[in-house]
Design a protein around this nucleic acid. Structure first.
Lengths: 337, 337
DNA sequence: ATGAAAGCGCTAACAA
DNA sequence: TTGTTAGCGCTTTCAT
């Protein structure tokens, strides 16, 4: 029926343990033996049983991707990350489970415990904003489960992937300044999210570098949603002196700004330049297309998973790798009126 | 260390097998015994090991959600479905694995084989357009793995969830007719997808019912993407007599239509009414907000998973349940010019 | 309605 | 470098 490790052993004329060693890429196997075993595995189409491996051993070859179910970033972002993680899993014969976590209350603790003790999860991919929930990270550490983070706020001792978002935001705002804008507003994302902090910092840095004043009226709080972008924009439009450009901390809010501009009869980019961050599909589907910063989300998911596996396989400790951003200059920004 | 089934047995004063029976909800256990066992499980915080169950038994309590990785519907749609599936899994102590399938070539056969024989997957949730790939369904059947489908084209003998998309499309187009439109165009989705067929059929039915002619020039092929919506709209605008309303088979293409309208200087809805299908977040983020049909995607994912589990638990055979649609009438449609 | 024994397919700890 | 033995925690027979 099913081809077992023992069958491979018999066919090769070695002990089951040796086959196990080959399977687990242990070094203490003579090369010729390894080749024979691998050949037999291949020809017999042997596939190890994850259940048996999980039961007998300490590893499950399962990783979990954790995401916040309340405070969700755009679902397209998560979907891309997930695809990237799956790419990496595929390549290294790991399987992935998707695990939305409701972070209200202590429910998530039980969920994490269940994951770890039930499924023997080998490691975890943590997506924003979970990357900076101390209670979660602490629990993972208590279980001794390694994790890789995507765009973590606190980077010391963390493995995974990040992008220089502050630099990207600065470049974007600098572009606005070069277009002649002097009254540039910023809509901040959810407070304490790394993304919000970096993008705000980049905005301030660009203004400071250009010697422009940092008018507190021009910094409005949002919460990464389309609706909050609309509200924030209305607030800015109500100011005695309107900004000529608005940098929203993500594309959804930027879309909200453009919506509010339409509502008010402002023509983008003639009367108002707008830009966002993330380069979601939405960015090119708006009219006019949105100037934004491209994040290679899928690649980031893949890289984070690779770092995790690097650590799991004990080949190294894993790194925090940095991916490049790119400015997508489109029609929603132009010279200041 | 870990609480095992045996520990629960000892604490309750019964044999391990009896605890196993309780765990698996077998009927042949005296009610008082069952209560005592359940109480002990609870108080000892017993959690069965999926690995051990998978290894010893025939079930894994794992379901896989399959989706097409090339021919992806909007990722927000899949993400919502996935959340719904996870809701149901949570409630019934199943776990879920997400499995993108590359359907080019025969690669997917190997992937499915691997899933089934490696992980002993108990059942599968199939999302469009996978619901109607005969080779995939055949393979699942050969493995004896039950599946539940979301919006399958062929409904006989299928369990899962569906919506009366034709009726919904008819209602939408009828609404346009009531607004006075007589020249109504339709942009079709990818050929052979159930969604494309039903929506087209609903469009035709509405025209026929109203006694309007079915002008073939007004039916243009798209492929569910924003870009294809733009192209299709340009094609329609180039017609000697332009339509006054366009019904795109999904929101992404409708967004493309609005983009093309902007490009051409047409004002929506003054010069042109536009409507879509799905009610993705995009619909309310466009200017003007898009008239569309709401699909309760998350609920659909949940219901499909519930039907699957119904079948897995042998309580019944599972059904194909129908969910209601709702028309979301917004500002992108108005009276004919 | 309940229990005893065997074993699922693999790895751990030890041996050789 | 390779093999032996004993389990991992549960479910399956088959008994009672």
């Amino acid at each position: 029926m099913r081809v077992r490790l023992e069958d491979v052993a018999r066919a090769t004329g070695v002990s089951p343990k040796t086959v196990s060693r080959v399977l687990n890429e242990e070094s203490s196997v003579k090369d010729s033996t390894r080749q024979r075993v691998l050949a037999a595995m291949e020809s017999m189409n042997y596939r190890p049983s994850p259940s048996a491996r999980g039961l007998a051993g300490s590893r499950s070859f399962l990783v979990a991707m954790l995401y916040d179910n309340n405070n969700n970033p755009a679902s397209t972002y998560l979907a891309e990350i997930q695809d990237g993680v799956l790419d990496a899993c595929d390549a290294h014969r790991y399987s992935m489970m998707a695990c939305p976590l409701r972070m209200r209350g202590q429910d998530f603790i039980r969920r994490v415990d269940a994951l770890v003790s039930d499924h023997h999860i080998d490691g975890v991919i943590v997506t924003p904003p979970l990357t900076d929930y101390p209670a979660l990270l602490k629990r993972l550490q208590e279980h001794g489960v390694p994790h890789a983070s995507i765009s973590p706020l606190h980077r010391e001792g963390t493995i995974g992937v990040c992008m220089d978002e502050q630099q990207a935001a600065k470049a974007l705002v600098t572009h606005l300044i070069e277009l002649g804008h002097r009254r540039i507003a910023h809509i901040v994302g959810i407070a304490n999210h790394g993304a919000s902090r970096w993008r705000l910092a980049g905005y301030k840095e660009a203004l400071a570098t250009a010697g422009l004043p940092n008018d507190p009226d021009y910094v409005v709080q949002g919460e990464f949603t389309f609706g909050s972008g609309v509200m924030a924009a209305r607030q800015l439009f109500a100011l005695p002196v309107c900004p000529t450009a608005i940098f929203a901390a993500n594309d959804d809010m930027a879309a909200g700004v453009m919506w509010a501009a339409n509502e008010r009869g402002l023509k983008v980019p003639r009367d108002l330049s707008v830009c966002g961050f993330d380069d979601t599909p939405l960015a090119t589907q708006l009219w006019p297309p949105l100037t934004t910063v491209r994040q290679p989300s899928r690649e980031m998911g893949k890289l984070a998973a690779l770092q995790l596996m690097e650590k799991l396989r004990g080949r190294g400790t894993g790194l925090l790798v940095q991916v490049p951003y790119s400015l997508e200059l489109r029609e929603s920004t132009s010279v200041a009126p």
